[in-house]
Design a protein around this nucleic acid. Structure first.
Ligand code: FES
Ligand code: FES
Lengths: 152, 152
DNA sequence: TAAAATCCCTAGTAAATTAGTTGTCTTACG
DNA sequence: CGTAAGACAACTAATTTACTAGGGATTTTA
């Protein structure tokens, strides 16, 4: 049930890009530095996001990464699907194709379907813009707090 | 985001036990055979469930496993927590202790909290009894379908 | 009482996944 | 040209997952 670091790093990078949306590209060193992670690793994640057409790149000096679309139009679901491969909790209950013909006899399937529905609901409804705005506002309120999540 | 096989196997075994609730213990070979998995592996899972006081055991011939309580009183959450270790999607957003003081500055945290809340909601509300009942009824309706989930 | 059926427990292992690192190449700006 | 960027491939290390093997303890039953 755990979200991978890929997802956490990648999602946060996308939020960073959303905050900078419209203000030109952000370079890899800046993005990686923002989270205190290695550039090499984050680069892989950004490449996936580029493949999925979520970010675009500008090469050469003063280049970097930027969102291809307005963060208000970008769902968390789309981002996580690219980073995680799929946001399905079990393979047979995927996003689009609820496999296992409905008649399938698995005692746990009704639970899995309900869970997946709720998860998809949150992921599809939440936009990157919302997260970016929340974050900016929180920072504006000047809360001085170390992110403790990446340690444990 | 994937649920482990531990969870899938273990949960289904618990549902099997729920169906047999009140009718004496069910042996490991029967439980494992029901899912077509190895006894050795399932035994480990059942031992976790025993440690967590969800199942009880009877040794010796005609022995086996049985639920310690009425399946109507047993939440899926309790079962999965034992099998999975924790149902938290990120360590800092655990079930009981929503760690990372609320002021924590992580841009993705609001999303994680919302997601976790919805997940916990489903897991806590769904009882093993419900799943067992659904399954029994579905079978009664005589639907002949192979479970294709465990293959992919 | 011996054999058979059960659960109990530890340890090991193989495969898969995750989380990175390294290094070389290409593109663009000034 | 020299430097600041991204593109890409390949390799590795660590961790987790999914088992397997094998011996021990307890209870029933013939
Ligand atoms: S992941 Fe926990 S605060 Fe960011
Ligand atoms: S896990 Fe998909 S039908 Fe059971």
């Amino acid at each position: 049930m755990k979200l991978s670091t890929r997802s956490r790093y990648g999602l946060k990078a996308v939020i960073d890009l959303a905050i900078a949306y419209g203000a030109g590209p952000v370079s890899l060193p800046v993005l990686a530095g923002s989270q205190g992670i290695s550039e090499g690793y984050l680069e892989q994640l950004l490449r996936e996001l580029k493949k999925g057409n979520v970010v675009d790149t500008v090469r050469g000096a003063q280049g970097g990464y930027e969102l291809t679309c307005d963060p208000a139009e970008l769902s968390v679901q789309r981002v996580l699907n690219l980073l995680e491969g799929s946001t399905a909790i079990v393979d047979c209950v995927g996003t689009l194709h609820h496999n296992c013909t409905s008649a399938c006899s698995c005692s746990a399937r009704p639970l899995f379907l309900k869970l997946q529905t709720r998860i998809n609901d949150v992921l599809a409804r939440t936009t990157i813009r919302e997260l970016a705005d929340d974050y900016v506002q929180q920072k504006a309120r000047g809360i001085p707090c170390k992110n403790i999540c990446e340690k444990a």
